[in-house]
Structures are given as C-alpha cells and as structure tokens.
Design a protein around this nucleic acid. Structure first.
Lengths: 167, 167
DNA sequence: ATCCAATAGTAGGACGTCCAACCAGTTGCC
DNA sequence: GGCAACTGGTTGGACGTCCTACTATTGGAT
C-alpha cells in the first residue's frame, strides 16, 4: 500500500467532474480509473498477506493452478494459457518458485520442446498455509456483500468476454 | 496484450468451481481475479493506444492532472497524493516526462525541500492528442452500457472507501 | 524426404510499482 | 537557540509484466 494518508475526498470522482466539464466521456474514464486503483489496492493487500509466506499473488496463483491439476504438473505453455500470462512471465514465475523448491522443471516425455512443471510437497504445504492467510483477509476485498460481489463478477466477466478473453 | 488465443472457456470461472469444491470463498476469489484480469486488459489496451504518442497510462494521468491544475504545476508530493502513487513512482514518472520535455522541474519559492512540476506547452499538446486516442477506444472498456458502467463505478468506489482510500 | 512455418521456452531490455535507506530541509518543543 | 522529529525527494534493489529476438523442436505441405 502506498504510504499516504487517505484524502478527505475521492480523487477519482473529482477528476471525473473535471472531465465532464472539459473533455468528455467522464463515466468511462471514472470506471477505468476505479478498476486500476482497486486492482492496486487488492494487489497490495494480497501481497502483504503473502509476504510472510515468501509468495506473491502471481506465484500463489501458479501454485493453486498446479494443485488443482490432476498430476500436480502442467506444461509451461498450459500454465500461461490458464493464468493468462505471457510466456516470459511464466518463465519468470517458475524460476522463482523453483529457486524456492516449491516446483520442479522436467522434460516432457514425447515433446522435447516443452517443459513440465511439477509442484513439490513443500509447494503443496506452502499453498495451504498461504490460502489460510488469504481467506483470513477475504483476499483484500472488503465493503461488498455477497450480492454485490456477485454483481461485480458479472460485470467484469462481461468486459472480459467482450475483450475476447474467452469464448 | 499477452499474445495467446482466447480459451474456449472462462478460466476464472473454472477456477472458481474448483475452489467451491475444495477450498472455500470462491465468490470472493473470483471477483478478485476478475478485477486483476480486467485491469490487465485495460492497461494493455490503453498503453497500446498511447504508445504511438510516446506515453503510458501512468504518464498520461500525470499530464492530465497537471492540465487540470490552475497554474499547470503541482508539487511532487501533491501529485503523489492525487494519483495515489508512492513518492518513488512519482519520481520515476516525472523523470520520463521531463526527459521528453513534457514537464519541467522547478524549486519551490519558499520550501526548498519541495520540487514543483510544471507542464510545458508541448506537454499540453501531447495530452490533447493522447486524449483523442483514448476516447477513440473508450479507454479499452467495452461490452458495458452506460448503466452498467455506472454500476461498476459504484461498486468499486464502495470497495475503495472501505479500504480507506478516501473519506 | 525435405523444407518451412508454427510452437515451446528463454534471454535481454523497458517500464511501473513498491520498499528500505538516505540526505536535505523544516518545524516544533523545550 | 538548538536539537529532535518530521517531511520531500531521490537512489538502489526487488518484482512482475510486457515486447523483441533467438534457439530448439515439431509437423505439415509439397
């Protein structure tokens, strides 16, 4: 979390008013700015909760993905598709998880191009304790009831579908 | 935008189903993951639109803030408060804007600690053309009507207020 | 059978964010 | 007045993301 005190007003809302007067589609700008800012808040909360466990949200997500997979292992390109990450980001994340002995890299039996990532027992343990830490803080998402959380998911899923995120 | 083809299913929704079965508060996790992903999509769209103009969204926001200010200038710490950025991020952004001759750094007349950032004429021009590029793509936010966009803003503002972002 | 396009992964670099540490200047308190 | 605590800004490092470019391998088209 950036170390500053809360403002006595909403800077996004104030900017929107100025936009309205001077520029144009203030509502869209406000929504976009809100998403950017909320993401930043959640990222900070989540990373703070994970820091004592030596993880970031990106690495945590990778561990969860592996735990969910049948064999506890997946090819790197599959991880990239599921996590919606650039191949180089997957390399980066797996590098760090491997350095922490939470995953292993192995060759694919038939396709020598692909690298298979397997979660270790330590990785499974780490994922469990990290999950407790995250659920304890509700993933940083506070101030919404169940209904509103569901609404938010519906709206954002609509955006993702429109953006061609999935079909 | 990460260079991969869209999946035939929603990976966030699928993960939520697995959470439901095995872990717990799947709804919250899904909402958080959605925010993270939508932010990423918007960031990519917006940055792509700004790249031809030599700007990023972070730098664009800083320019807009300065344009909105009365004298076209603000102390750096004020910029950090309004943009909700860490002081070091402000330093970083102003460095790059200054290298592009879009802003200037000057000393404060009475407080020699503070640095005042002033937008240049070139900066004002750049902001105008960049704004056209952004409004042309609706800031990357597509798939929602005006009503839904407003709903989204209401929900996210609630989250920010609960997180102590403003009061 | 061969060659060429596509795919899997990595290396190097840019950018933005944060944190910890630091220096310079200011303010308040005694 | 003087010293301590605070504030404003920068530097250096870590991290995650992306892009471009590259190597190795695969597979299809001719």
């Amino acid at each position: 979390m950036p170390s500053h005190h809360p403002l006595p007003f909403d800077p996004i809302d104030r900017a929107a008013q100025l936009w309205q007067d001077r520029i144009g589609p203030a509502a869209t700008m406000a929504a976009v700015t809100n998403i950017m800012r909320v993401q930043q808040i959640l990222q900070s909360s989540v990373d703070a909760a994970l820091r004592p466990h030596g993880l970031t949200f990106a690495r945590y997500e990778a561990l969860v993905l592996l735990v969910f997979s049948r064999q506890g292992s997946l090819p790197m390109n599959m991880m990239g598709q599921r996590l919606q990450l650039h191949p180089t980001s997957v390399t980066n994340i797996v590098d760090r998880l491997q350095a922490d002995h939470l995953v292993e890299r192995n060759g694919h039996p038939t396709d020598r191009r692909t690298t298979v990532v397997t979660i270790t027992e330590a990785g499974r343990q780490r994922q469990k304790t990290a999950t407790v830490a995250l659920t304890d803080i509700d993933f940083g998402l506070i101030g919404l009831n169940d209904d509103e959380t569901a609404q938010l998911t519906v709206l954002l899923t609509k955006v993702r579908r429109s953006a061609g995120d999935f079909s």
